[in-house]
């Protein structure tokens, strides 16, 4: 194959591969290496009780696992800087995490929704890069809610609220860092 007939020209290069690997590593390491932290341990008990008066959602071990925070999702708003390479990287990182999920094999489908959500961030990166992350949060929350309800059979509303709060929280933190990076012009 000659240099002139290069089907990968402009599509695949070492910088993008490096970015793919770095984002995959950060996403995977954030969950595999750090202690698992569920949203249940972060929210005040009064708020948890208000969301789930029956207490069955709070007591569910599987939902504790499902609502574990994925620190790598803080990178989601940075898709505006990094593009497709980071989308694939974060998705792969999530796939690695999903292989260790205690929820079950259904969690292997979660990276698909991650990929879709991150793609929306790339599509709607201006103005302000707010619409994309919100769509990402919504997609992931809906999917995780479906998983939670399928696996446990609990009431839909508390599960949905908790998944939404989890994803909104972590992506918001990432968005703050994104704004900081944008202000400081770290990534051009």
């Amino acid at each position: 194959m000659s240099k002139q007939n290069n089907p990968l020209k402009g599509i695949f290069n070492t910088s993008r591969f490096g970015l793919f690997v770095i984002t995959a590593g950060i996403t995977a390491a954030g969950s595999l290496g750090l202690p698992e932290t569920s949203i249940f341990t972060l929210l005040p008990s009064s708020l948890l009780t208000a969301i789930d008066p029956s207490g069955e959602v709070i007591a569910s071990e599987k939902l504790h696992v499902l609502l574990t925070i994925i620190p790598g999702f803080m990178l989601a708003p940075f898709i505006a800087f990094f593009g497709m390479a980071a989308i694939f990287g974060i998705t792969l990182g999530h796939l690695v995490i999903a292989t260790t999920s205690k929820v079950g094999a259904i969690d292997l489908l979660s990276p698909l929704f991650t990929f879709l959500g991150l793609f929306f961030i790339r599509q709607y990166k201006s103005p302000g890069n707010i619409i994309g992350p919100l769509i990402f949060v919504l997609l992931i929350s809906l999917w995780l809610s479906y998983v939670g309800i399928s696996v446990t059979g609990f009431n839909m509303l508390p599960v949905m609220l908790l998944t939404l709060i989890t994803q909104l929280g972590i992506v918001s933190v990432g968005y703050v860092f994104y704004l900081l990076a944008k202000q400081l012009k770290i990534f051009k």
Binding site: F17, G18, F20, A24, G25, A29, G93, V96
Partner: peptide, 15 residues
Amino acid sequence: TYWHFVHIVWLFLFA
């Protein structure tokens, strides 16, 4: 690129 590949493999090993 080879080094990045080694890194990727490690992630799966860890998991």
